[in-house]
Nucleic acid binder design. Structure first.
Lengths: 134, 134
DNA sequence: ATAATTAGGACTTTAGAGGTCGGAGTTTAG
DNA sequence: CTAAACTCCGACCTCTAAAGTCCTAATTAT
C-alpha cells in the first residue's frame, strides 16, 4: 500500500544517473539498464515519457541517448512522477479523477481529512528536487 | 500509485463512525456497512483487525458490536493503518521488509532520498489523530 | 547499407487487492 | 435450552492493474 510503482523507481534511478553523467556525453537506456539490473524494455519506456515531458532530452540514432534537459534544481520529484504516471501521486481515487469517479462519494466521510494528508504528501514530493538526490 | 487500500478507507470510515456513535451503545458491522454501502464481509474483517489491535473493543453475541477503546486523541491515522495492514505505509518495499527483501538493494541509488520522503509521509500520518477527523 | 539507438503499440504474465463463502464461537432473549 | 444476532476467522475465488515481453518502426552516425 502507498507503494511507488516500479516505473517510478526506475525513473528516479535513471534520471539521477543521467544527471550524474551529463558531461557532454549522452547516456543510453541500455547502459542504465545494465548498470542497475533493471529490465531494458520497461526502462526504455519510462525514459521516453521523461523525454516527452521535457525533463530529459533524447537523441536518436547511433551514439544517441539521453541527457538532462533542465537544471536539477528545477526538477522536482513530483514532476518526475507526474511525467511517468500521467498524474500526480494520490492516496485516493477522487483526488486524481475528481468526485464523480467515486461511486460512494456522497457517503464518504473521510475526504476532508484525507485531503489534508494528501496535501502533506504533495508537499513532500514537491519539496525535493533532482539536485538533492544526486 | 501511492493509493490507500480499500481496507484502510473502510477502516477510517468505520472507526470514525464508531467514534461518533460511542455513547453507551455499541455499533454493529452491519450498520456501518449499510450506512456507507460498503461490503459487509470485507468491513467485518477490517473491524476485527482494529479490535485485535486494541483500537476498538468488540462485544460478541446478540446486541454485540463495537465501541471505541481509546481516547480519540490517542489514535493516530498511522496506528489505524498499521492495525489494518500489518505494517506501516511504505513507499518502497525495503522500508517495510528490510534491505534483504530488495534484490537490487546494492544497486539502488535512491534509497537515501526516498527514506527522507518516507519520513515526511510517516509524519503526515502520525500527526493526524482520530479526534481530528470526527 | 548497416548497425545502434530511440519510439511506441500490442500483447502476455503475475501479484495483490478486493470480494465471497462457509463455518465456528459467544451472548442474550424467550 | 434453544434460537437468533452477533463477532471471529480461515480459505477461496475473481478481477484489475502493474510489470514485463515482443515486435516493428523511425532516426542517424559510420
Amino acid at each position: 500500500m502507498v507503494r511507488l510503482s516500479k516505473r517510478v523507481e526506475y525513473g528516479l534511478i535513471a534520471i539521477r544517473y543521467i544527471a550524474l553523467h551529463t558531461n557532454g556525453d549522452v547516456v543510453t537506456a541500455k547502459e542504465i539498464a545494465d548498470k542497475h539490473q533493471i529490465p531494458y524494455e520497461l526502462l526504455a519506456k519510462v525514459l521516453q515519457r521523461l523525454a516527452r515531458a521535457g525533463l530529459i532530452a533524447s537523441q536518436q540514432g547511433v551514439h544517441g541517448g539521453y541527457t538532462l534537459a533542465r537544471n536539477p534544481n528545477d526538477v522536482t520529484i513530483s514532476s518526475i512522477i507526474n511525467a511517468i504516471e500521467g498524474n500526480p501521486p494520490a492516496i485516493a481515487q477522487c483526488m486524481t479523477e475528481g468526485p464523480e469517479s467515486c461511486e460512494v462519494f456522497s457517503n464518504c466521510t473521510i475526504k476532508s481529512p484525507l485531503t489534508k494528508v494528501q496535501a502533506n504528501i504533495d508537499q513532500a514530493f514537491k519539496s525535493m528536487t533532482l539536485a538533492q538526490i544526486v
